[in-house]
Write a protein that binds this DNA or RNA. Structure first.
Lengths: 199, 199
DNA sequence: AACGTAAGTAAGTGCATACTCACCTGCAAG
DNA sequence: CTTGCAGGTGAGTATGCACTTACTTACGTT
């Protein structure tokens, strides 16, 4: 009368799933999550979809990241950091080569258009920060550092840095709108997109 | 045996609800919805909260706006339109007075910082457009018109218009981050915020 | 007074979401 | 072979969501 332990004869072998160290899984999850957040935003991104996309169970996702909020903070941090570090590297290399660092950083920035993900996640972070105060704090701090680095590496003054950052924001918005091919965009840039003004 | 029609003695009078024409209610709802969307984004904004904030039942909200999507499209349209019209007006008035229209439009734009709502709704629209294709179409079109108007009224060329719009985006982001008082912001603007560069 | 209609609602429906619990399993060391 | 344990899951739970149905009520017109 007790329930039989028999599992009802699994019809196929259970696919012999690979076991993977947790760290590696976390990286997978963060990649997948970034793509989904880029499309849907942080609030609408669903943990179930992230789990499925990462090839793990919903339950295990919450062992890797105890709450959705922590996952999102990490996603945001990765995206911001990647862009920040990329720009620093490009700027300093150019400087070492005796070229204009600001131009090099601009090119690096526009290169990010190739894979929109970081750009979009950054934008989504900004809009989510209104209802996620911790994120807001982190972002304000991060922006301060980015701007300080731009200024330090390029040696440019406030006006030039402001113009530079503003252009970056415009690119971000164009990417988010999927408007790279809109005629007003090509009019604005008067030629192929990837060129930031030398100012 | 039939259920008594007696309503169990309503303890207070039912508050004598005011009846209001549907059009007027729609305006209320749109205002409330804009504020909530500004904070939470279009996906996370809840119709229930919008209804409650507007002082109507959840059910009636869906008579005023048949779906959430239509509500959101209207919210987005209102915000974008308000900013667009405001800029056109400021630009043309300045032109009539013989002043630089681009400067006037910039001032108008920064004035929007006083009540962030439109700025934020615009940003939220942009990020939502990735998962709401109709919205994306509308936004790309609207941006084309805005940029054409800026160019027409100011007579400025692509570079100046691009710089102008980019500054606008930066302001939008600063507002979204709630970073108006951050030190990097005041460094960037080197003085009080509301001043766009003449170029 | 009585009627028509626009304004308004209580109480759902069914589905998605974030998160949990009890349990299972591949693999390396003793 | 056995055991320990990190890696991994099926099947929930409670809550919130967009949206609906059937109904009531205020008010201008005749």
């Amino acid at each position: 009368m007790s329930t039989p332990t028999n599992h009802d004869a699994p019809p196929q072998a259970p696919a012999k799933r690979r076991r993977v160290p947790a760290e590696e899984r976390r990286e997978d999850v963060l990649r997948v999550a970034a793509a989904i957040v880029a499309r849907d935003g942080m609030h609408a991104a669903s943990t179930a979809e992230i789990a499925k996309g990462s090839g793990i169970s919903h339950a295990y996702l919450f062992r890797l990241f105890p709450t959705k909020e922590e996952l999102m903070l990490e996603v945001s941090h990765r995206a911001g950091d990647a862009m920040h570090q990329g720009m620093i590297a490009a700027g300093e290399q150019a400087k070492a080569r005796g070229e204009d660092p600001l131009v090099a950083m601009g090119i690096e920035w526009t290169n990010q258009l190739a894979d929109h993900t970081n750009l979009l996640v950054s934008l989504q972070s900004i809009t989510a920060s209104r209802s996620l105060p911790v994120l807001g704090d982190r972002l304000r701090e991060a922006w301060g550092e980015v701007i300080a680095d731009i200024a330090r590496i390029s040696g440019a003054g406030p006006d030039a840095v402001r113009a530079f950052v503003a252009q970056g924001m415009l690119l971000q918005v164009i990417a988010a709108l999927g408007a790279e091919d809109a005629e007003w965009v090509s009019w604005l840039h008067d030629g192929p997109l990837p060129c930031m003004p030398p100012t």
